[in-house]
Amino acid sequence: MAFAIQFVIDVLSLGGAYALMALGLVIIYGILRLVNFAYGELIMVAGYTMYLSSGSSLPWLVMAVLAVGMAVLFGILTDYAAFRPVRAKSVTAVLITSFAFSNLLQNAALLFISPRPRNVPLPEIFSQTVSIGGAITPVRNLITIAASIVLLAAVAFLMRKTTLGIAMRAAATNFTMARMLGVPANLIISSAFALSGFLAGVVGILWIGRIGTVVPGIGLEPLLVAFIATVIGGMRSLPGAVVGGFLLALIDTTLNYTLSQDLLKFRDAFTFSLVILILLWRPEGLIKGPASGQRT
């Protein structure tokens, strides 16, 4: 029983984080049909903001808000630096500029901060554990679950009930038509990048909370998770991204529990093979995105 509880908590907390990562990526992709390679660096930015503000005497929560704010800011900056100038030219051009921008941010962190890990301030509660039905689990896993439930619900509300969210969904299927109804393109795109940055910021704090330090390459794993989860889930569907995130977490956790120590090192390779199998079966991903839609 304790084992089952442990397993479920692990899947849900990892899946919640994965789902948020994937969601932040797919929000941009859904609207612009463009992949943001610099997405992982938003998590890095959140981490370094925490590190840099740790010297101050600000309360932790203020630092966290600051970190999320910086991630939002850098999300919008990504649009201006890597997307806007080449958006109309080609899909590959944007892939390349965002990849270059990702390298730029990482190397700026290397140059101006340090190649070595830096400590990130975390409240006491992140390192505590509780016992639930006999299963000893870190409190931060529960925080992650709670945060992802709240955020997923908030995103769902935003996308379903607010004019901005509905306009964003409309723009995702047919950008030009949305503009012809008066929805400003720049507002939609900036909102998408801001939302993406917001999700990256929050998930960044939760993610960094697991290890307590930040390095320039911290964004790679979340980026990879987001990539795989969105490909499984179906690239253009927001629910797909969430499903993909939880499924990936289920695969990873199951492998964590079943693989021997020797094989565990290859976990990513096993996960990837499974993903390839899923894609052989459904090349479009599990959930199809909105029907039509051309790129702008």
């Binding site: 004019t163 509905i166 306009a167 969904r169 409309a170 299927t173 047919n174 038509m177 949305a178 109804l181 008066g182 929805v183 909105p290 029907a291 039509s292």
Partner: peptide
């Protein structure tokens, strides 16, 4: 907008 309801489509018309 095929995924949006009729009401949502109309609402966007009045954006």
């Amino acid at each position: 907008f095929p995924d949006l309801t009729v009401a949502e489509n109309l609402m966007l018309g009045a954006y």
